[in-house]
Amino acid sequence: MKKDRINIHFTVIENGIKIPISTRHGRYPNLMFLLKDELMLESFGECGGVGRCATCVVKTKEIRGNSAIKDRNEPATLSKLGFHETNIRLSCQIYITADLNGAEIEILEI
């Protein structure tokens, strides 16, 4: 099966409401763009996905593989806001891969 045809299913929690999401690998460059598009979030991801503004902070559960690793600007940006937990992430730094299958993503208000 081709990588881009793999269906990925996970749950997003926004304001206490669970929303099932289904997508495919490669449909969005990262989780931030998917959330903005699917949930029409305003003032979310203002820096465009470079990991500096922290307007796309999420709490993750059940993310596996490489998607669970913080990389690039993410650790420094989160640290400036006082977030040191491994499950607090910038959605712009999470790629849409099978690592998200079955995950739960909660959008945090900052």
Rank of each mutant, 00 (worst) to 15 (best):
H9W: 07
H9T: 09
F10A: 05
V12P: 05
V12C: 06
V12W: 04
E14I: 07
E14W: 11
E14R: 14
E14S: 08
N15W: 07
N15A: 14
N15E: 15
G16E: 01
G16Q: 00
I19Y: 04
I19C: 12
I19V: 13
P20N: 04
I21M: 05
I21N: 04
S22E: 10
S22K: 02
S22W: 10
T23W: 02
R24T: 05
R24D: 09
R24K: 11
R24M: 10
R24E: 11
H25M: 08
H25Y: 10
H25L: 05
G26E: 10
G26P: 09
G26C: 00
R27E: 12
R27W: 04
R27A: 11
R27G: 05
R27T: 06
Y28P: 03
Y28Q: 06
P29T: 03
P29G: 07
N30K: 09
N30G: 06
N30W: 06
L31N: 13
L31I: 12
L31Q: 11
M32W: 10
M32Q: 06
M32G: 07
M32V: 04
F33P: 06
F33M: 07
F33S: 11
L34C: 02
L34E: 02
L34I: 04
L35C: 03
D37H: 13
E38A: 00
E38N: 08
L41H: 14
L41W: 05
E42Y: 14
E42R: 13
E42M: 08
E42L: 15
S43L: 13
S43F: 15
F44Y: 15
F44E: 03
G45K: 04
G45P: 07
G45Y: 05
E46G: 15
E46A: 02
C47D: 15
C47R: 14
C47T: 13
G48V: 13
G49I: 10
G51P: 04
R52D: 03
C53K: 02
C53R: 01
C53D: 14
C53Q: 10
T55F: 14
T55Q: 12
C56R: 09
C56K: 04
C56V: 12
V57E: 12
K59P: 02
K59E: 15
K59W: 00
K61R: 09
K61H: 07
E62N: 15
I63V: 07
I63K: 04
I63N: 01
R64W: 01
R64C: 01
G65F: 08
N66P: 02
N66Y: 12
N66W: 01
S67A: 15
S67F: 03
A68Y: 07
I69L: 05
I69F: 10
K70T: 09
K70M: 12
D71W: 11
D71V: 06
R72P: 04
N73G: 06
N73K: 02
E74M: 08
E74I: 03
P75E: 11
P75V: 05
A76R: 06
A76I: 12
L78K: 14
L78D: 12
L78I: 08
